[in-house]
Design a protein around this nucleic acid. Structure first.
Lengths: 343, 343
DNA sequence: TCTTAGCACTCTTGACGTGAGAGTGCTAAG
DNA sequence: CTTAGCACTCTCACGTCAAGAGTGCTAAGA
């Protein structure tokens, strides 16, 4: 495949930009007029035909303008989006919002989703950071009533997990406290496997709790467990491509269906942090995403804990804005995770 | 306003049922044929005209069938929906799902939302139970690194809150443990106000933490803080009324916009548990809900902690199914809350 | 008094045809 | 390589028209 001439690249860029703006096929004359190109519409037509032959543009029908193909968007994203940074104003606003929130994952996650969706003007998803290999830090058993006990487990990096459990016979708070203390001494800093090995030698209560703790730590590791925060789902419903409802349904399904989303995130993102990945039209791997694009990134600290975040939208989206929003919010969250996990 | 004759009630019920099923205005002949009424279409027409005069039905245009008005739906819900219980099969499936889940709010809430939306076949929302007046139960301060400390607070009823905090100067784990112990002795069973009063006499670290704890307890009480779980947003997008996108946007906004939803829940539901409330077309109080209906209930234990749950849909929804689904899931959650909070 | 058959009337809906407009591709000249 | 000109194609908006659905009314029957 031959190179594009600089003018052809410009034209491709302008077609994408104009189509993203107007949502209707863009013609040669409109292009020349809107961007005051120094060539005539006939010249543009030749280039458009060339771009179409190369598979970057397509024709809804004979007498309509051009529309970018998936390949066209990919070329655009790969070589033509300028590396737009978020305006300083937006950056400080975002930073300020995080600064004001309580220092707590449960505050940060929905805030991140909200900020991301508002900045990108698209539906956003954020997953909770998952420890790469969570380690035991602290355990507390708290008697609530009768046989019921509340278990609160703190893992390294500030992950807090809680669970109710029923004992076969009541145990008083003092005994629970002793059991907690012993496990805390015995298991500090260990991962799930090691805790399980040591569980065997312990008295019944402690052994049960230890096994439970190992299970919780393993769950936390599995990655399939983390909550997903979403926001801005409505942001996209006014878009003309979703006027029919059928397409809207497709996009919503992606955002809503946990397993699908988890699968895509796991497949598309490697372990490295900070790299923004753009999936256009499912990339042939996901049929459900054929009409959508995703802009994703992993955030966090590679060796300790990472999560994923991103926006979902129609293929006709403002990739520049989406990419810079995702990159910036991922950076902010990475900093927050770093602060929490450094210990 | 006069009474409806029994036949008029039947006809109103059938119009609602048929319109909910077919989504298009229902005419006299169709009604007679579909339900094999023992009267002629002309008779039905007379009754339809009467129902229209009373404001229960309306006419999109001269030669179309009838459509229920908001008043019509209200009459239907108030007097004509049979008290349909969920089939045993569905009830056991639901109970089983809750039984299988881990005993933990973070598992129950999304499960409840998912189950509710699947049972009612509508978007569902569930709020976390909020303690009526949360009481201090247990505190743990855990050093992570340097100046940063993780605070884990357990309130009565199994509510666990966590927060990071920065100290002006580093404090080692031992000192943190001592501070936790002292506060645990001093504050056990107290509410926010009392904790704050006692904070004054304490050394700096403990005093600061106590004040923070009071703040967290107050936040937990405020009701505006609780997370909202949602599910099944896409369930409704195929419905013909949302083919245009504009209406879909309205409904989605209700489900997504925290403050709006919180406001409606707070206004519409009293403190009592278990009563199912049906809001049709915003009831004149909420303009945003003009095209929607909500079926809501409060669950939990009145004196200890309650949350809200419900489904949102177009006014043309299956109220019978929605009401029984909401009632049943509210019951299940109430039981779970009762088990957790009894201590 | 209530019910019903019959009928005229109204309004929507889809099909069809038409003209304007937009945009293309091609050709030939600069 | 660029550009003006032109024929060609296709959509879209508009108007017309007939079919169909459903109503309201009237008058007769139970």
């Amino acid at each position: 495949m031959e190179e594009l001439t600089p003018r052809q690249e410009t034209i491709l860029r302008l077609v994408v930009r104009e189509y993203v703006r107007s949502a209707s096929p863009v013609g040669s004359r409109a292009l020349v007029e809107a961007y005051e190109l120094p060539v005539s519409s006939a010249t543009v037509r030749n280039d458009l035909a060339r771009l179409e032959a190369l598979g970057y543009l397509s024709h809804p029908h004979t007498s309509a303008g051009r529309v970018p193909t998936l390949e066209g968007y990919r070329y655009f994203v790969g070589r033509l989006v300028g590396d737009v940074a978020l305006p300083l104003r937006e950056r400080t606003t975002i930073a300020h919002q995080f600064y004001q929130a309580r220092r707590d994952l449960e505050q940060w996650m929905p805030l991140a989703a909200s900020v991301l969706s508002q900045t990108a003007r698209l539906p956003a998803v954020v997953t909770v950071p998952q420890a790469v290999e969570p380690h035991y830090k602290h355990l507390q058993l708290i008697s609530t009533h009768g046989h019921t006990v509340l278990l609160v487990l703190v893992a390294h990096g500030g992950i807090v997990k809680q669970q109710m459990l029923n004992l076969v016979e009541p145990v008083d708070q003092e005994a629970l406290g002793k059991a907690s203390d012993r496990l805390n001494q015995l298991c500090a800093g260990l991962a799930a496997d090691e805790i399980e090995t040591r569980a065997d030698g312990l008295p019944s209560l402690e052994s049960d709790v230890a096994r439970l703790v190992a299970g919780i730590l393993r769950d936390a590791e599995a990655g399939m467990s983390g909550t997903i925060y979403r926001d801005g789902l409505t942001a996209v419903l006014q878009q003309p491509e979703f006027s029919e409802g059928e397409k809207a349904h497709g996009l919503m399904r992606i955002v809503e269906e946990r397993s699908l989303l988890k699968g895509v995130l796991a497949d598309a993102l490697g372990p490295e942090v900070g790299l923004v990945r753009v999936l256009i039209g499912g990339e042939g791997r996901w049929d459900e995403l054929r009409a959508c694009s995703l802009v994703l990134a992993r955030y966090g600290v590679s060796e300790y804990a990472t999560g994923a975040l991103g926006v979902v939208g129609p293929t006709r989206m403002s990739y520049g804005r989406a990419i810079s929003a995702v990159r910036f919010v991922a950076g902010v969250l990475s900093d927050l995770v770093y602060d929490s996990y450094a210990g």
